[in-house]
Amino acid sequence: MSIEVNLERMERLTAKVWRSYSKEDPLSHLSFNEYDYLKTVQASEEPIRLTDLARELEVSKPSATNMVKRLEKKGLVERLACPEDARAKRVVLTEKARIPLASELEIYSVVADRLKVNLTDGEFTSLNQLLTKALEL
Rank of each mutant, 00 (worst) to 15 (best):
S2D: 14
N6F: 03
M10V: 08
M10A: 11
T14L: 11
T14Y: 06
T14D: 13
A15M: 12
K16S: 12
Y21F: 12
K23R: 15
K23Y: 05
P26G: 07
P26F: 01
S31F: 03
N33H: 07
Y35G: 14
D36T: 12
K39M: 15
V41H: 02
V41S: 00
V41L: 01
Q42W: 03
A43R: 09
A43K: 07
S44T: 11
S44Q: 05
I48D: 02
R49D: 00
R49C: 00
R49F: 02
L50E: 02
T51C: 00
T51A: 07
L53T: 07
R55M: 10
V59K: 10
V59L: 14
S60F: 02
P62D: 01
P62K: 04
A64F: 00
N66I: 00
N66E: 08
V68D: 00
V68P: 00
R70L: 07
L71N: 06
L71W: 04
E72D: 13
K73R: 13
K73G: 03
K74N: 12
L76H: 04
R79T: 11
R79F: 03
E84C: 02
A86L: 08
R87M: 01
R87N: 10
K89W: 02
K89P: 09
K89R: 15
R90M: 14
V91M: 04
T94M: 02
A97R: 08
A97H: 01
R98G: 02
L101F: 01
E104I: 03
E106H: 14
S109G: 14
S109A: 08
V111D: 11
D113S: 10
R114A: 08
L115H: 04
K116D: 15
N118S: 07
N118I: 05
T120I: 12
D121G: 06
G122F: 04
E123A: 11
E123P: 12
T125V: 15
T125E: 13
L127M: 14
N128I: 08
Q129M: 10
L131W: 07
T132L: 06
E136H: 11
